[in-house]
């Protein structure tokens, strides 16, 4: 357990010291969201209509941006070898890396989302549900993303391939996540959507840990 948290702490310290990756994905997220009003026009009713979808799509894309480095940095400098020969099972190691990725790359997006939602003219009840849906749904992005990151870890330009592998698998999260917010805005119960999101997150916890661990074993072999 101490080792597990030690790993997460090291990744957090690295993210804070390097800083740039976190800031970059945050800037990317904001810029993508800002592009939409410029593209479709500033009518508030249109923006309110597309807001949930825009925020979710922007979150998926920003997540992709940091995904390819999830294991690659450790793979390139040989740290992954030393992590693997250590006493933690590889599945648990993957979970630690996923948690660190989520905390450093996705949590900042969730924090800034209410501000962006306001700029898209989203009503208050929608903003609450948006944050909640992101909190419940985004772990899936890190977990499924870990599979793609592990499969492409040894490739020099794996980023583009990674998005082709991972984005289709993100579709259910996008659909239920945006539907939850739209339901809340339309004064309908959002709970079923949120429960479905939670179910997907739990499912991808199991699938993601084992599949990513298998893919990492392969990359080292």
């Amino acid at each position: 357990m101490k080792r597990f948290f030690g790993l997460i702490r090291r990744d957090l310290v690295l993210a804070v010291r390097q800083g740039s990756a976190v800031t970059l994905s945050l800037c990317f997220f904001v810029i993508v969201v800002v592009l939409f009003p410029l593209g479709v026009g500033p009518e508030l009713s249109v923006l309110a209509r597309i807001g949930p979808g825009v925020l979710w799509v922007a979150a998926l894309l920003s997540c992709l941006l940091t995904l390819d480095r999830m294991f690659q940095a450790d793979f390139e400098d040989g740290s992954l070898d030393l992590l693997i020969i250590g006493p933690l099972p590889l599945e648990i190691l993957v979970l630690g890396k996923v948690i660190a990725h989520w905390l450093t790359s996705i949590l900042p997006l969730i924090v800034i989302t209410p501000v962006l939602a306001l700029s898209l003219n989203m009503p208050t009840e929608g903003i609450w549900t948006m944050s909640l849906a992101l909190l419940i749904g985004t772990p899936t992005l890190s977990l499924i993303g870990a599979i793609g990151a592990a499969l492409t870890v040894a490739m020099r330009r794996g980023g583009v391939l990674l998005s082709l592998l991972v984005l289709p698998l993100y579709i259910p999260v996008l659909i239920f996540g945006a539907a939850a917010v739209e339901a809340a805005i339309g004064q309908l119960p959002a709970t079923p959507h949120l429960l479905l999101l939670a179910g997907i997150s739990l499912g991808s916890l199991v699938v993601g840990m084992f599949a990513a661990a298998a893919a990492l074993r392969l990359a080292l072999d």
């Binding site: 289709p168 698998l169 699938v207």
Partner: peptide, 13 residues
């Protein structure tokens, strides 16, 4: 690995 993850996901998608 990808095909197996994909086939689990297809019904969900």
């Amino acid at each position: 690995i990808l095909a197996l993850v994909g086939v689990i996901n297809i019904p969900i998608i």
